[in-house]
Simulated assay, not measured.
Amino acid sequence: MTLLERYIRAVDAFNRRIGRFAMYLIFALMGVLFWSSLSKYAGAPSLWTLEFAQFIMVAYYLLGGAYSMQLGDHVRMDLLYGGWSPRRKAAIDSVTVLFLIFYLFVLLYGGISSTSYAIEYGERAHSVWRPYMWPVKLIGVVGILLMLLQTIAELFRDILFLRGISVNHQSEAGL
């Protein structure tokens, strides 16, 4: 197995585990929103619930993004793409993915800068609850980094495919 294949398999396995964990955050989100409803009905609304639900949603979305990309469940414009051969798809993807890599690098740079600012200055949300912002920003940076690693794995997968080496996504049974 080549170095590229090992990288692809390692990133796929790691992002699969993180993505499977992130899937269950929806239940935490439901629990927080259920508590919000109960506390409002009881006449003692909790100040933290809606903002905390937003933080959970950020984690759900960003930590699950790389897994979604791995499964091919992300939004794609299939007007022309759907009718192309696998080889042509890999060729086009190996070029267009460079724009995504650039975009993710810019997001990662901004996310790291924003997170370091939040840690250094103790940034808090402008709400009554006033939670620290660095935990949710750190989750965002980790999610962007995972997306970047998965994007690079997809690029390597396309390059290997164009060279005649097929590196398929590992099966769900491997968990």
Rank of each mutant, 00 (worst) to 15 (best):
T2H: 06
L3N: 06
L3C: 00
L3V: 08
L4M: 09
E5S: 11
Y7N: 08
I8T: 07
I8M: 11
R9H: 10
A13I: 00
A13K: 09
A13M: 02
F14C: 08
G19Y: 00
R20T: 11
F21G: 10
L25W: 00
I26F: 05
I26P: 00
F27A: 15
L29H: 12
W35D: 04
S36I: 01
S37N: 14
S37K: 00
L38N: 03
S39N: 13
S39E: 13
S39C: 06
K40W: 13
K40G: 02
Y41N: 03
S46H: 10
S46Q: 14
T49I: 00
L50P: 00
F52T: 15
F52L: 15
A53R: 09
A53M: 11
Q54F: 11
I56N: 12
I56D: 13
M57G: 10
Y60P: 01
Y60A: 10
G64D: 07
G64N: 11
G64H: 05
G65S: 12
G65Y: 03
S68R: 03
M69V: 07
M69Y: 08
L71Y: 02
L71G: 05
G72V: 07
H74L: 12
R76S: 11
M77T: 10
L79M: 06
Y81E: 08
Y81W: 08
Y81M: 06
G82E: 11
G82L: 01
P86Y: 02
R88A: 08
K89F: 04
K89L: 04
A90N: 02
A91F: 05
A91C: 00
V95Q: 03
T96Q: 06
L98H: 02
F99M: 09
L100H: 05
I101G: 02
F102C: 06
F102S: 05
L104K: 04
L107E: 07
Y109H: 08
G111Y: 08
I112P: 11
S113G: 12
S113R: 12
S113Q: 13
S114N: 15
S114L: 14
S114C: 02
T115Y: 10
S116I: 15
Y117F: 12
A118C: 13
I119D: 13
Y121D: 13
G122Y: 12
G122I: 14
E123Y: 09
A125V: 14
A125I: 13
H126C: 00
S127N: 15
S127K: 10
W129A: 10
W129V: 09
P131S: 07
P131I: 09
Y132S: 13
V136H: 09
V136T: 15
K137V: 09
I139W: 02
G140P: 09
V141S: 11
V142N: 03
G143Y: 04
G143H: 07
L146S: 13
L146H: 05
M147Y: 02
L148D: 11
L149D: 10
T151L: 03
L155N: 05
L155H: 06
F156P: 01
R157W: 03
I159L: 13
L160V: 04
L160D: 06
L162C: 04
L162G: 04
R163V: 01
S166Y: 04
N168I: 02
N168H: 04
Q170A: 03
Q170D: 05
E172Q: 03
E172S: 05
E172Y: 01
A173H: 03
A173M: 04
G174K: 03
L175C: 00
